[in-house]
Computed example of a mutant assay.
Amino acid sequence: MTSRVVLCPDGVSIAVSDLEGDGPVVVLLHGLAGSSRELLPTARELDGCRVLLVDQRGHGLSTRRPDDLTREAFVEDVVAVIEELVPGRRATLAGQSMGAHTAFLAAAARPDLVEGLVMLEGHVAGSHDPESAAALGRYFASWPVPFADEDAARAFLGDDAIVEAWVADLQTQGNGLVPRFDPDIMRRTIEAVHEPRWAEWETLRVPTRVIFARNGMFDDAEKNELIRRRPETDRIDLAGGTHDAHLDAFEEWVGVLRQWLSRGERTLDGRDLGGIGSRP
Score class of each variant (00 low, 15 high):
46 L>P: 00
107 A>L: 06
276 I>Y: 13
223 K>W: 05
236 I>E: 03
175 N>I: 10
20 E>F: 07
182 D>E: 15
206 V>L: 07
140 F>L: 10
114 V>W: 03
174 G>H: 08
264 G>V: 12
259 Q>P: 04
13 S>V: 07
220 D>H: 09
14 I>E: 03
103 A>S: 14
199 A>M: 11
230 R>Y: 05
56 Q>E: 10
177 L>E: 12
144 P>A: 04
253 W>C: 14
123 H>E: 12
65 R>S: 15
162 I>E: 03
43 A>R: 01
272 D>G: 11
235 R>G: 01
242 T>N: 02
108 A>I: 05
191 E>M: 05
116 G>C: 06
124 V>N: 04
199 A>P: 07
185 I>G: 07
81 V>F: 02
189 T>D: 02
57 R>C: 07
278 S>A: 15
172 T>V: 11
1 M>P: 03
208 T>E: 07
81 V>A: 04
68 D>E: 15
145 V>G: 04
269 D>M: 11
205 R>K: 13
168 A>N: 13
220 D>W: 06
14 I>T: 15
215 N>G: 07
89 R>S: 12
101 H>V: 14
191 E>V: 05
15 A>P: 06
72 E>Q: 11
106 A>F: 05
227 I>D: 04
20 E>N: 11
4 R>S: 00
261 L>I: 14
87 P>S: 14
222 E>L: 10
246 H>P: 06
258 R>Q: 14
203 T>F: 09
55 D>K: 02
113 L>W: 06
4 R>C: 00
85 L>D: 03
54 V>P: 01
194 H>I: 00
15 A>Q: 09
194 H>S: 05
68 D>Q: 07
59 H>N: 09
220 D>P: 02
242 T>D: 02
223 K>V: 15
226 L>D: 00
186 M>K: 04
209 R>C: 09
106 A>L: 09
164 E>S: 14
58 G>K: 01
195 E>F: 04
227 I>A: 06
